[in-house]
Nucleic acid binder design. Structure first.
Lengths: 204, 204
DNA sequence: CCGCATGTGTACGCCTCGTCCACATCTGTG
DNA sequence: CACAGATGTGGACGAGGCGTACACATGCGG
């Protein structure tokens, strides 16, 4: 009897739909995790049709990644104070804090997990998440090498794997937790290994 | 009309069934990957009933892990030649070689990926895979500290994350490949950071 | 030699996937 | 301003995996 004002069929502005889908995807991801994240549910939540989702996103993982970015505002900056050790310290601690203190850690871990069997997600993740971050850290280190703060024979790419890889290791294979003490010890070991012969800053 | 000799119904020796299931699981895992790995298929391949599988294994991941162990004979040794640097070098290179040279790398990556949303697999993986390996490396390093080959203030657990974590990082988030040059550079950086003040072995 | 524990075949309801259709509505072009 | 085409919607479909249940056959232990 009651006639709904909006029957909901027919074309809707793409921007509007896209925004609602991303919001729904982000929300679902945050509180259901990758396990309960499904095209079906996102469609239901957002009020969009499954077909639209399949048209715009190649895989469940790719949609989840977009949802993640929409949910957590990413600033993506790398300070350059002129002191590479301090900057790396700041960044790694911030990263570890984000991964352990918020639900972002769980989500990122599940995205990486899903990307092992979802090529589209893997590509999207590399392109939009890991590669940019890696590049920021690397350029900062290259500049530091120019200033003589880092040994010239050290490959910055490898340092990235040492620092962030170690954190991801504990995040993905949680034999041991990511603690502040862990991050401090990690930074100490790594910095000691890549500093010039006579360390610029004496540690301890 | 033709009467099959073995109707296949009724009880079968548990050992026999278990062996066949593990063989089937391993084979399926190796050539279909975690994507095509399903209870249904393992049951069909092994000739066992789905119900039996559900009874013995709590999740698809747990079954896959057992299948993996059955498929690749794991030796799990850590040499102790008295030279910790050489031993770590050997171990990390062997690990990297296994991960890149065989299909084991793909499978392990997918197992870790799956474990992000499968608590049973995560527990089994930690208990039967990562923890034992970590322990081997750690005890070797503790012994080395006793011999004065490693700084006493270094936490061996963290070194494990630096070395293996870095490799896993490139395995799971393949921005860059795991090459011999990478492993060499990694070892150089790490060893330089954990060696006593005057390095026991001069590198370069 | 017999009873019972245990695995087997089979079937079921539920869910997700990925695709398809007919239709409603927005958008831009003349 | 009107109309035609582009685009999203609702609804439905078959395939396939999940997880469970039941009745039956058979090996093993007493």
């Amino acid at each position: 009897m009651a006639v709904p004002v909006r029957r909901g069929r027919g074309r809707r502005p793409a921007e509007e739909v896209r925004a609602e889908v991303l919001a729904a995807a982000g929300a679902l991801l945050l509180d259901a995790g990758m396990a309960g994240f499904t095209f079906e549910r996102v469609a239901a939540l957002s009020g969009a049709s499954k077909m639209t989702l399949y048209k715009w996103w190649p895989s469940k993982g790719a949609l989840a990644l977009d949802g993640y970015f929409a949910a957590v505002e990413q600033t993506l900056t790398f300070p350059d104070t002129g002191d590479i050790e301090a900057d790396l310290r700041t960044q790694v601690h911030a990263f570890a804090g984000l991964m352990t203190g918020t639900s972002a850690g769980r989500v990122v871990a599940e995205l990486i997990g899903q990307s092992q069997t979802d090529p589209d997600l893997a590509a999207a993740f590399r392109e939009r998440y890991s590669a940019p971050r890696r590049a920021l850290a690397v350029t900062a280190m290259v500049r530091a090498q120019g200033r003589g703060q880092l040994r010239a024979d050290v490959d910055p790419e490898i340092v990235v794997d040492q620092l962030w890889g170690a954190c991801y290791h504990r995040l993905l294979i949680p034999d041991l937790p990511v603690t502040t003490a862990f991050v401090d010890g990690l930074l100490r070991n790594v910095l000691r290994g890549i500093a010039p012969r006579e360390p610029v800053t004496a540690d301890r």
